[in-house]
Design a binder for these strands. Structure first.
Length: 577
DNA sequence: AAATCCCCCAACCGCAGACAT
DNA sequence: CATGTCTGCGGTTGGGGGATT
């Protein structure tokens, strides 16, 4: 096997290397373009997971952890690079106030962002504010630990003595409960939401913030509700079937940050409001996706794994397929909402090429003008690279490149199409399972750490929008801004949904058998836990974060015809790709 | 112009949980 | 049940580069 070590000789001395225990010298330090290409191609072929096998199968002189990190932070599709937007920053602050240094969980709320990015951002911000003597949080955000001090509760990883120390050291101006350096100032997420039916309470010192989070309530009010009303009357449990999907129309999307303060009732300056735990996010039966591979050095191809499962879970083909298949007009898959200015914004429920930021730099091998030679010798000899070996920070694969790399046959495309059809119908079952677990009093509310939030993006690459596809067609075009009501159209009739339920009885039974199982899947995003007690509806986040505006700049005319609106792809949604 | 500071960010490390054997 | 492996998370480090002194 040819070992590719990048620029070992050039880049590093002995300190830049380590052994994998089998005499293979593994490289450390910055990744080169060639290494990226190897990793990218490998993941494309084999899916995520089993990272240690990358080195074994490709000769890439990188440890599994390094490969995983590189993929998650730089190579995976739909990464959103560049500076945080104001909305993102605001959300980060809010999330940090609620979650503390739970970067991965915060990243789950910021489509396309990685935990590392958020962590870096926060640490930088922390440092700056400390230096300037400014408070960490704006006056309208009170950190959760000040509202729900659990001085005796230690976080799960309390061994991290440094955790939150900065905040403890600094952010004390309003705290009546001193935090000792050894105790986490933040309530445990588990403690917050130990009860499946418990609600998450967010406290805000003004109505503005409350309003921002109002849409998080899945119980869309039929009449305008002031934050105080929301606070005083905890929403009742859903009257409809508890077997609900966050993707269905029960929980329409409202923009979180687009409401001008003038429209907000400012009478209540100290608002507490409560919203119930959101419906479970979609995830396949975890046992289907147990990321344990066979003992051979060759990891199971994800597609093969999928094909043997009763349902089609999500795998890497969830993105590769939509990346490689022709993009079709999202006619029935575009959800449009009015904001309060009566402007239209929209996002597409199906991933579209135009949803990819394209003006940020990308690994050169991902660009169409670069035709890599995939022979290992070319990797080794590296004769074709003329670009700087190390990428800049913003590296985003482009759709066109994937098309270049993926020469899927028509049969393969059809296979992917079918897989996604099944994925779509499977997602409802997964929700059913989740809810059933919760109703059964199991610990479905607290999925194991390894159970990752995943669902397949509805792959509308064919133009035959059959019922399965329409299942995810949600249009918010009847939002009445004057009453803050979202009416829904283009929805699948309840009866049809019920029929689907009935026809899936047997499968549900199977699923229930798997309920206690635990596993993990790869979602093509950075790690995302599913036991969020503050999981924002991904639709809401989609409304929050329209695709990188730069994407629109490079769209082709045809694409613009199809997507004359801002698009966010499913793959931008953490855990839903 | 050089030194220093600061910001940004990629990547590493250690640890713990989940799972397989 | 013990042990080993894999993975994910959070904390930390160190280099590059721009701004400032």
């Amino acid at each position: 096997m040819i070992m590719y070590g990048g620029e070992i000789e050039k880049a590093g001395g002995p300190a830049n290397h380590m052994s994998n225990g089998e005499g293979v010298v593994l490289k450390k330090g910055p990744w080169t373009a060639a290494e990226d290409e190897i990793l990218y191609v490998y993941v494309r072929e084999n899916g995520e997971g089993n990272w240690n096998a990358v080195q074994k199968n490709t000769g890439l002189a990188r440890c599994g952890k390094s490969c995983r990190l590189r993929w998650a932070n730089h190579l995976r599709p739909n990464l959103r690079k560049g500076s945080f937007t104001g909305d993102e920053e605001r959300l980060i602050i809010q999330l940090h106030a609620q979650l503390g240094n739970k970067w991965a969980r915060m990243a789950a709320q910021l489509p396309g962002r990685t935990d590392n990015e958020i962590k870096n951002y926060w640490n930088t911000r922390l440092k700056r504010l400390q230096r300037q003597g400014l408070p960490l949080y704006p006056p309208d955000i009170i950190p959760n630990h000040q509202l729900h001090p659990h001085p005796h509760h230690h976080q799960q990883n309390h061994h991290h003595h440094q955790q939150h120390q900065h905040q403890q050291m600094y952010f004390q101006p309003q705290s009546s409960q001193p935090n000792t350096p050894s105790s986490s100032p933040l309530p445990s997420p588990t403690a917050i939401n130990a009860n499946p039916s418990s609600s998450f309470t967010f406290h805000s010192t003004n109505a503005s913030t409350a309003y921002l989070l109002h849409p998080l309530s899945p119980h869309t009010p039929t009449t305008p509700q002031t934050p105080s009303q929301v606070s005083s009357t905890p929403p009742p449990p859903p009257l409809s079937s508890p077997l609900s999907s966050p993707r269905n129309n029960q929980y329409p999307t409202l923009p979180l940050f687009t409401f001008p303060s003038s429209q907000i009732n400012n009478n209540n300056n100290n608002t507490n409001f409560t919203f119930p735990r959101p419906p479970p996010l979609l995830q396949p039966p975890s046992s289907l996706l147990a990321k344990r591979y066979n003992n051979s050095n060759t990891p199971l191809n994800c597609i093969n794994r999928v094909s043997t499962a009763p349902f089609s879970p999500v795998s890497r083909d969830s993105y590769t397929s939509f990346l490689t298949l022709p993009y079709s007009s999202p006619t029935a898959q575009t959800a449009t909402y009015h904001n309060t200015n009566n402007n239209y914004s929209s996002f597409s429920l199906n991933p579209s090429p135009s949803s990819y930021p394209t003006t940020t730099s990308s690994p050169s091998f991902l660009h169409s003008q670069y035709t890599p030679n995939y022979s290992s010798t070319s990797f080794h000899n590296n004769p074709v690279y003329t670009m700087k070996q190390e990428f800049p920070s913003n590296q985003i694969p482009q759709i066109g490149v994937f098309n270049n790399v993926n020469n899927f046959t028509d049969n393969e495309k059809q296979k992917n199409t079918n897989l996604h059809r099944r994925s779509i119908s499977c997602n409802l079952l997964e929700d059913v399972l989740e809810e059933a677990e919760a109703l059964a009093g199991g610990d479905g509310d607290r999925p194991s750490k390894r159970r990752q939030l995943t669902a397949s993006p509805p792959n509308h690459h064919n133009n035959n929008n059959n019922d399965n596809d329409n299942f995810f067609s949600v249009s918010f075009e009847q939002y009445d801004s004057s009453e803050n009501i979202y009416s829904l159209q283009d929805l699948k009739p309840k009866e049809e949904e019920s029929l689907q339920m009935n026809t899936m009885q047997d499968d549900i039974a199977k699923l229930l058998d798997w309920g206690s199982d635990s596993g993990e899947i790869s979602n093509g995003q950075s790690s995302v836990l599913t036991d969020d007690n503050l999981v924002l509806d991904v639709h809401q986040l989609n409304s929050l974060f329209p695709a990188d505006s730069t994407a629109a700049e490079t769209r082709t005319n045809d694409e613009q015809n199809n997507n004359d609106k801002i698009n966010c792809s499913w793959d931008n949604l953490h855990g839903v790709s």
